[in-house]
Amino acid sequence: MTATLEAPSILYEVEPLPDGRELHVYPDGSIVVSGRAEIRPHPVEGVTWITRTPARTRARRRPRTTIFTSALPVRTIWPSESSMERVAARRTAHERARELLLSLLNPFQREDYVHHSGFWVETARGRIRLGRLYNLEFRPREKPYEKQILCVLPVNHETLPLPDIWTNLLLVLNQDPDKFFRVAVRR
């Protein structure tokens, strides 16, 4: 329902809102909401409340927040000695594995691996790039411009340092490429 009221100096519209308040729209476009909002929405015509509406609104006590108060001391959790030992052991393993891999690479492969963390291996079937786990780029000899993605891994590869995985695949590719391509999953 919209009513137009005439004030001494201005003309404006008053529109009742569903929650019981009133919306005042002035000619210059500004609006004012007046009145007190009901805690329940305005009932739909012909539909009754399922439960009784409360007689009055009651403010709830704001819960006390203690999480971000400055009174709490800041506690720094340092890595435990055992976890630091594990990290150190993993780093040592990675270094050993890398050393072995570098000793197995030819000078071109070594330079490629040092700068790009990957290297190409030539096989009778084509070139294959080792360096991205689960995504080995393969360029078949008969279609060198075609790129295939293969996935080959050593058994229980998750227990090996990454350079050991490349050592594993490199040696198999060099000496038993048929086995490598037989198990390869093409993506």
């Binding site: 072995l100 197995l104 689960y134 996935c151 080959v152 891994l153 050593p154 058994v155 229980n156 590869h157 090996l160 050592t167 594993n168 695949l169 040696l171 198999v172 086995k179 490598f180 198990v183 390869a184 999953v185």
Partner: peptide
Amino acid sequence: IVWVRAVVGG
């Protein structure tokens, strides 16, 4: 002698 593991498709 370098021992490596068997390979499987991933």
